[in-house]
Design a binder for these strands. Structure first.
Length: 506
RNA sequence: GGCCCGUUCGUCUAACGGCUAGGACGCCAGGUUUUCAUCCUGGUAAUAGGGGUUCGAUUCCCCUACGGGCUACCA
């Protein structure tokens, strides 16, 4: 029964893709690559009322950014399309009819209002879990309770109807989940779900079975929220006669909010100040903007690495994995069963790790577009090299502007604590030493500095903070000798002189 | 309410009956550093509770508690 591994990611285009969705896509992708199989993108838009403009493009762009692009599916071609369910509309009817003929499904004419009334009544009587099932269907308007003539009459008259699955009254449905093991549910606790809606579209339940079968899907890897309906899907495969090729199931645990309990939501991100979406998203109706990891300065590979580790681990101490390494290491067996709370701090840490591994030149290339000043690539690479040890994000590399302009303000605290009466005199003498230094390298700058201290019998603390504040305006930062080398002799001396002037006046 | 799934340091997790329950993030302390950051060293801290099974349970079973998911002509 070994066959080609084919998995799908099947989001509905109802808005931006949540990071939980991205992780589901990622695990599908990793599983496919691990087994040399196919990763397919299918758009599940059977609910036309929830369609959101731009969502499909957002999904594709997100996957692309993450580097987990499908090799088949909507926007990627393939022989088993179309890969959008609304475009497959004509394909479903025959399978619904097949079920009706096999007495595994039936027509139902109840209106939404009538059903709501049933639920309300049941609730009033203290029975909140009303179901359309083997018992209640006898009292409702459908082809199991009405005569054949009545049914024909209604159909002929064009009365709206849905088609429901006909579940047995009391039968155990069991299936093996790749992550959870055996799951057993009794049909007495399930209801006759609608398979085909009155608007002529199948519901998710019907469409996903038909499509997975037609697209030869071997494994269904999806979120835990689908676990309760998995038995229904198993039954559908059986009733359609597709048991032999039914896919295996794996239900992923959910991603939870960092604090408290419950599923991670957009609100949590707003509240706690971190993105919940891979890319920034502007709501087409309200104009509301939701921040994205990409726009917040996260590296795609760091983001993917972090996501992979939320619910999965390789069983080794290694934490930094490239996408290729993840493909190699990933197994469903090592996916945990329980939900994981999202940790923004750890996400930041991952980004920091990736930032460190990049060279100054690589980082310079990345931040180049954000630089207003006219600087050389070499200079910018030097800035990045100096700043990267104290940054987690690329924008932090540019947090201090003293590399690009002469400071106009001087750190107040440093001045207050370190600037003494005799300081101008000392700095002027130091400046003179530097003016005669020809080999302007950080090592020489440092040596000159230390010799000067020895000569004057001064400590580091008396001179270096002042040196720093004059050149950079700051009270802290990378090595002053390296900064000086990068800035160049002329610039450093210029700043020392103009700085003293300003401070003496003040 | 019903059904299903789950439960190891604050968080992500390792230990698939057998060591002082390991690692990472965070936090705290010390060291390095002119300073901040980095870095190094150390520390804090967990098997939800109760019953079994067993020579031995984090691990297997049951109950309880807690948490989550589902319960639409939404996916």
């Amino acid at each position: 029964m070994d066959r080609r591994v084919r998995v799908r990611f099947a989001p509905s285009p109802t808005g931006p893709l949540h990071i939980g969705g991205v992780r589901t896509a990622l695990y599908n992708y990793l599983f496919a690559k691990k087994h040399g199989g196919d990763f397919i993108l299918r758009i599940e838009d059977t609910d036309q009322t929830r369609f959101v403009k731009g969502a499909e493009e957002y999904i594709q762009e997100s996957l692309k950014w993450c580097g987990i692009e499908p090799n088949e599916g909507q926007g990627y071609g393939g022989d088993l399309g179309p890969y959008v369910q609304s475009e497959r509309k004509p394909m479903y009817r025959q399978y619904v009819d097949q079920l009706i003929e096999a007495d595994k499904a039936y027509y139902a004419f109840d209106t939404a209002e009538e059903l709501n009334e049933q639920r309300e009544n049941a609730k009033k009587q203290g029975l909140p879990g009303w179901q359309y099932n083997a018992v209640t269907r006898q009292y409702l308007k459908n082809s199991t309770s009405l005569s054949a003539d009545e049914v024909q009459e209604k159909l002929y008259a064009g009365e709206p109807y849905v088609v429901r699955i006909k579940l047995p009254r009391n039968e155990e449905v069991r299936f093996h989940d790749e992550i959870r093991g055996w799951v057993v549910v009794n049909t007495a606790n399930m209801d006759d779900k609608v398979l085909f809606k009155s608007d002529g579209m199948p519901t998710y339940h019907m469409a996903n079975i038909v499509d997975d079968h037609l697209m030869k899907i071997s494994h269904v890897i999806r979120g835990e929220e689908w676990l309760p309906s998995a038995p229904l899907h198993v039954l559908l495969y059986k009733y359609l006669g597709w048991e032999d090729t039914a896919p295996k199931f794996a239900h992923l645990p959910l991603i939870l909010k960092p604090d408290g309990n419950g599923k991670l939501s957009k609100r949590d991100g707003d509240r706690l100040g971190f993105p919940v979406f891979p890319l920034q998203w502007t709501d087409p109706k309200t104009g509301d903007i939701s921040s994205g990891y990409r726009e917040n300065g996260y590296f795609a590979d760091a983001f993917v690495n972090m996501l992979a580790f939320l619910g999965w681990n390789p069983g080794t101490p290694q934490e930094i994995f490239s996408l290729e390494e993840l493909c190699e290491a990933f197994t469903l067996e090592r996916v945990g069963k329980s939900g994981s709370k999202f940790d923004p701090d750890k996400t930041k840490w991952f980004n920091q790790q990736y930032l460190r591994e990049k060279s100054g030149a690589e980082l310079a290339e990345l931040i180049k577009p954000q630089i207003g000043a006219d600087v050389s690539d070499e200079f910018l690479a030097g800035v990045c090299e100096l700043m990267k040890e104290r940054a987690s994000f690329t924008h932090e590399l540019l947090a201090d502007n003293y590399f690009f302009e002469t400071p106009s303000e001087f750190d107040e605290k440093t001045i207050r604590k370190k600037w003494k009466e005799h300081t101008p005199q000392i700095i002027e003498e130091l400046t003179a030493k530097y003016e005669s230094l020809n080999n302007w390298t950080s090592a020489e700058i440092e040596k000159t500095f230390k010799d000067f201290l020895t000569e004057k019998e001064l400590g580091m603390g008396a001179v270096l903070p002042n040196f720093r504040v004059l050149v950079t305006g700051k009270g802290m930062g990378p090595s002053m000798f390296q900064i000086s080398e990068l800035l160049g002799k002329e610039e450093v001396i210029k700043r020392l002189k103009s700085g003293i002037e300003k401070l003496v006046q003040a």
